[in-house]
Design a protein around this nucleic acid. Structure first.
Lengths: 186, 186
DNA sequence: CCTTTCATGTAATGGGTTACATGATTCG
DNA sequence: CGAATCATGTAACCCATTACATGAAAGG
């Protein structure tokens, strides 16, 4: 009997979420973690491989060896029934508000210490960034919207549309905020 | 001569930003880190005390012993001229986009795996939270807006207004987004 | 031929949370 | 008289990043 499976770490649940959408190798998970998931969670391969091993020990994922180009055997992972259950439980579980870490705002909070021109540069830079991410969200959203899967509440695409819409809305608000600040800094 | 002062850590700069606004004890910094700074950066006292020691070693802050209720000498810290310069440099320095960690969105991204009623509960919960933070931002903002300091670009209150306005705008967008989702989940 | 992509791992280090430890004063 | 507040520190642990290590196949 395997040891009592406690709730996996957040990273573990992120990986379960990815694998529930489609089975992947660890390498592939690292790629998928960059975009579009990377906009709200990220991890490097050095963190992913040990986590996959832990998930497998707990019986939440399993792997089969497939053909691949690496020096070691290439493993394709998939969620097990227990893993799917763990994912569902995690999604439904109440979580207390996480501490936010927003470096951009932290710097802005000390902007009174620098020259107005420096401050404007800072805000302009932030605006460009928000706009870039906004565009990426919009592109991805327009690719999904209108498809029949996006309407099906039990289909991954439905959840993707929800999160992308949130990204679009908050980034749009951020761009408008930057414009508002630039106006105040004139 | 003290050893070459490299740029302090982000936490170090956060503390410099706090101390530049007003000198404090480590205990007080921990309190001030909860609200309102805590909305975009946070730290516990166990992290703050060693960081203060490091900053002092680099000559960026200094302390004087004052009367206090603790078992050890109570130290009031203040930024030095070098510390102020380091803060200004850090604010003006370009930073590459930080990886975002948004647990709420990560869970939402896997919402297709659960029942619609569970999904609605999740979004309702998120809405309450965003609204609570929004209200806190608005209160703090209304206390500052209209004061003469809020107009002075070299006064801390000016920067506070900028960040609070951003908080209000993004949280408002988030609440509207939740309503949009609840509509889609009907 | 050199770089990129596929592919999986480990080790060292840094950042952050939780828990341990201490002790005076104030308030209910 | 017990709990909360003031006040500072250390230790153990977890999470995450960077760097080290290996090697085949494909494309420019």
């Amino acid at each position: 009997m395997t040891h009592l499976a406690s709730t996996p770490s957040t990273l573990g649940c992120a990986l379960l979420g990815l694998l529930a959408r489609s089975p992947s190798t660890g390498y592939d998970l690292a790629r998928r973690m960059q975009r579009p998931v990377g906009y709200f969670w990220s991890a490097r391969h050095s963190q992913i491989y040990p986590e996959l091993a832990r998930l497998e020990q707990d019986g939440l994922v399993s792997h089969e060896v497939v053909d691949g180009a690496g020096p070691r055997p290439t493993k394709r992972y998939a969620v097990t029934a227990a893993g799917m259950e763990a994912l569902r439980t995690w999604v439904a579980t109440e979580t207390e508000p996480q501490p936010v870490r927003d470096l951009e705002t932290l710097r802005l909070w000390s902007v009174w210490t620098v020259e107005p021109e420096t401050a404007r540069g800072l805000v302009r830079q932030a605006r460009v960034r928000h706009e870039d991410v906004l565009r990426a969200y919009e592109e991805e959203l327009s690719a999904l919207e209108g498809t029949p899967e996006a309407r099906d509440r039990s289909h991954p695409a439905f959840a993707s549309v929800l999160t992308l819409e949130g990204g679009v809305r908050t980034r749009r608000a951020a761009v408008e905020w930057c414009d508002w600040m630039l106006d105040r800094l004139r």
